[in-house]
Simulated assay, not measured.
Amino acid sequence: MHLLLVRVLVLLSLAGLAEVAACGNPPPSATSIYQYANATFIENIFVLPSGYLLLSTFDTANLVALDPRVASPTVRNVVALGNTTGHTAVAALPNNLYAVAAGEHTPFGFVNNTMALYVVSITGAPPRGSVVTSIPVPGTMMMNGLAALPRRPYTVLSADSIAGRLLRINTITRQVDVAWTDAALGSGGNPDIPLGVNGLKIVGDWLYFTNSGQGTLARVRIDAEGNKVGSVQVITTLPTPATMANAYDDFDLDRCGNAYAALHPDKVVKIAPNGVQTVVAGNGTGPTLESPTAVKLALDGKSIYISTGGNFAGPTITGGQVLNLKLCSC
């Protein structure tokens, strides 16, 4: 029996998505915090220093927030970003400032030349915000993940998922340019998913990113300006080709280097530094995840917050969700 169990675990690891417990018996499952009653798609989630969660959605100009610590949280408007109809990612800048990518949303993209990087000031609890400035980012139909450069904290990198490149925006000088391009950033010619590079996360001198079309989590060393130094290193690849029903979205990293990535259509996976993947939420355990879009580590590092887009295809509309999953120590 012992040898059989070992063989099963080895086979699961080789498959890439080990359906095993994250820790304990039974493992912890995600708990629901909030769900929209209407057809609101939550694209991303950001944890403010106050502990409030900032949500970016489609179909509205408003960034909204909720307090995950209360029994029955409600969303409240924080700031309206011009005439935009959708927001993607948020990155923290110094002095209570935040960069937000927004534009006029269309399916799998944004209307060309409508995307901009908004710099907003957000303070207080509950949070209130105001627009400081907006920086046009012409010539792109997608600004997806955002990450501020550690040694140039007023400059952010943005994932152009459609063109397969990294954009660089200096929020002081308002300069916009292409930081770099690489085949690892494109969709790989995937006929089902027109999106390549998606979520971004910088840890030290390393830029981590997911690629939806290629089904990869990868990293590359960057310099202080965000330029690529060396070759892209693929950490893991989905065991089956990426499709609309099998694709990475946004992610976050814990202090031990484990990545927690949203994986369409219904799960979150933990990806160890060696590339082994384990399902930790969804996929029939705990609440159903309806199109998970992003994962963010809680301020104390002991849990993750998960956002979903919802399900609008069936006879019953399921709005976007916010969930929490307790983590085991790493």
Rank of each mutant, 00 (worst) to 15 (best):
A247N: 12
L289H: 02
S134T: 11
Y154I: 05
G109L: 12
H87Q: 15
D205G: 09
T140S: 13
L4K: 14
K326V: 14
Y305G: 08
P191G: 08
P292M: 11
V131Q: 06
L289T: 01
L63I: 04
F110W: 12
A224H: 12
L97S: 13
A116K: 13
I271G: 02
Y208A: 00
D160M: 02
L185A: 05
A147I: 03
S187K: 14
I304N: 08
N198K: 07
R165C: 09
S56F: 09
A99I: 02
K201E: 14
L48F: 05
T240W: 13
P26D: 07
Y36R: 11
C23Q: 08
A18T: 05
P138W: 11
A281P: 03
N311Y: 05
T85E: 04
L117N: 00
S50N: 04
A147C: 05
P49K: 03
V111A: 15
Y52T: 01
L185E: 05
T293S: 14
L289P: 02
R69Q: 14
E225V: 13
C330G: 14
G319R: 03
L117R: 00
T171D: 05
A61N: 12
I33A: 00
F251S: 07
A125E: 14
Q214W: 08
V279R: 08
L63D: 00
G230R: 09
R221W: 11
T155D: 00
L289V: 05
D249F: 04
T85I: 07
A313R: 14
L9D: 08
N112S: 15
G16D: 07
G82D: 02
P265F: 10
P26R: 11
S231G: 11
A30C: 07
K267E: 13
T88I: 09
G320T: 01
L3N: 15
G301N: 03
C330H: 10
V6S: 13
P287D: 08
R219V: 02
V100S: 05
W180Q: 06
L149T: 03
K228F: 12
A224G: 04
L185I: 04
T84Y: 09
D160N: 08
A102P: 04
A179C: 08
A259D: 08
V70R: 04
N190Y: 01
V20N: 06
P150K: 07
G16M: 10
